[in-house]
């Protein structure tokens, strides 16, 4: 199942069926809860943010596991230009009953302007012991070595930058295009 929830007003999605569930959104602000209330559910959440001018995004996500043997994986990528800002708070909570859960939360931010800002708080709250959980967050500018390599091959600076940005967000765009991951 693939669902683009960019335009949804809904703030809570309850997953009651096993199998694969893919959620996708772009430049969305607000709080979204994914309540996983089924065994053997595999939930994938993808978010893409491209900030320009004075865009300000405020996002909160919850991956709430209540049943055992399920998975949820969240990936949020941002590219922030001009004076844009991204404020993020993500939480994975795994209740005592939800043994053998695998959950991850990844937030990768690319700041390409001196005046852009990122604030991110990826949280884990884990009660059972047989789980595999991880979260990671990175903030950086474009990789200088990669940029240098492309330019040394005759690509103009702006084209090289665009290529690298495309490469960075492709992982998520692909999900949107193929409606699968």
């Amino acid at each position: 199942m693939f669902k683009n929830i960019t335009e949804d007003n809904q703030t809570k999605y309850t997953i009651k069926e096993s199998g694969k569930h893919i959620f996708y959104f772009e430049n969305k602000s607000g709080e979204i809860t994914f309540s996983i209330e089924s065994e053997k559910a595999k939930v994938f959440i993808f978010g893409l943010y491209q900030g320009k001018e004075k865009n300000k995004f405020n996002l909160k996500t919850n991956q709430h596991h209540k049943y055992p043997n399920s998975e949820s994986h969240l990936l949020i990528k941002t590219v922030l230009d001009n004076e844009s800002q991204f404020d993020y708070e993500g939480k994975i909570r795994i209740e005592r009953k939800a043994q053998k859960t695998q959950a991850s939360l990844k937030n990768q931010n690319l700041i390409i302007s001196d005046n852009a800002k990122v604030s991110t708080l990826p949280q884990l709250e884990i009660l059972p012991n047989e789980v595999k959980c991880s979260h990671s967050a990175t903030v950086s500018d474009l990789n200088k070595a990669q940029l240098y390599f492309l330019m040394s091959r005759g690509v103009s600076e702006s084209d090289a930058k665009n290529l690298l940005i495309q490469g960075f967000i492709e992982e998520i765009l692909k999900v949107k295009e193929t409606k699968n991951c």
Binding site: I111, V118, T120, S136, T138
Partner: peptide, 19 residues
Amino acid sequence: PKINQENKTSIIAHEASTE
């Protein structure tokens, strides 16, 4: 873990795992 970054030239990487 709370992370704030206000310039583009810096790099922050955070990882956590529980098992």
